[in-house]
Design a protein around this nucleic acid. Structure first.
Lengths: 146, 146
DNA sequence: CTTGAAGCTATAGTTGCTAGAGACATTAGC
DNA sequence: GCTAATGTCTCTAGCAACTATAGCTTCAAG
């Protein structure tokens, strides 16, 4: 049996994060020791490693919740899991495209900066005037995690 | 003079977001009409467009705060602005590298899925066992906005 | 003059954690 | 056996960067 600290160390997840996952129902409530400390077995470790790995791959907690409930029913068809993974892949591809455009624009910006006064600075100037941009990097369509 | 709605429409920023920017001090407090409604001039529009553009390029509000105060002092040297832009470029490049690795892993995952039962699903299996991965996509080093 | 859109304030919710306070449990060294 | 150092407990609040809601007032068109 593992205490929460050992579990976290083995799975690569911080202790408060584990408690948070329990709180939102991603992990089942752990058994407790005589002194009220959480104790975990191998199954909990596997489940937490699954979550950690999926987070590393950028899945949201909501998607992970679905994937976990799928993995809890091994007899069901796997189309749903496949769909979640494909959606995540599509999301990653959209972000890649967007970041590539941003990179190009930022490069243009810093390359043009010749290092004089702010009044002559291309960085400030370009930020103030979108028409100086080459690509259309508007409409952020959510850039967030991850 | 523009009402907050017109300003938002012109700059491509939602009305509550403008009020939020004012609240956190990114925009100065706007003048008010007789009926206590905010009124904006050309300068406010330029400043908001600057913010919007920088957000589109992924700068944090904190970085934008710095860029704005730089642009308010046009006689200062522009190294600071350049540094902020370069830092943002480096950040974008790190995210690109990471997303590229994620994309490869996700592709491997979905390609291997043959569509049977969950018990045989590669997606679930790979998520449960990191050693099945080809790349080391661990240590997220903050994937967040944008 | 009325109606509907747009504005106002203030508060709470989102995602995925992270940090802190103050109290109890466990373990290592002596 | 004792003490000190960790580790764990609960609870609350905070982060970014907004978004949404409620309940009100003001404005512009017909």
């Amino acid at each position: 049996m593992l205490t929460i600290g050992k579990l976290g160390a083995q799975a690569g997840v911080k202790v408060p994060t584990i408690r948070y996952y329990e709180q939102i129902g991603l992990l089942p409530e752990a058994g407790r020791s005589a002194g009220n400390q959480r104790l975990y077995g191998r199954k909990a470790l596997e489940r937490l490693a699954f979550i950690r790995h999926a987070r590393d791959l950028g899945f949201t907690l909501e998607a992970i919740r679905d994937l976990l409930s799928l993995s809890d029913n091994p007899e069901q068809p796997c189309v749903a899991a496949d769909a979640i993974a494909r959606a995540q892949l599509a999301e990653v591809e959209r972000r890649l495209a967007r970041l590539t455009a941003l990179k190009a624009e930022l490069e243009r910006m810093v390359v043009q900066c010749v290092g004089g006064k702010i009044a002559d600075c291309r960085v400030i100037e370009v930020l103030g005037d979108h028409s100086l941009c080459s690509t259309d990097h508007r409409h952020p369509e959510s850039e967030s995690s991850p």
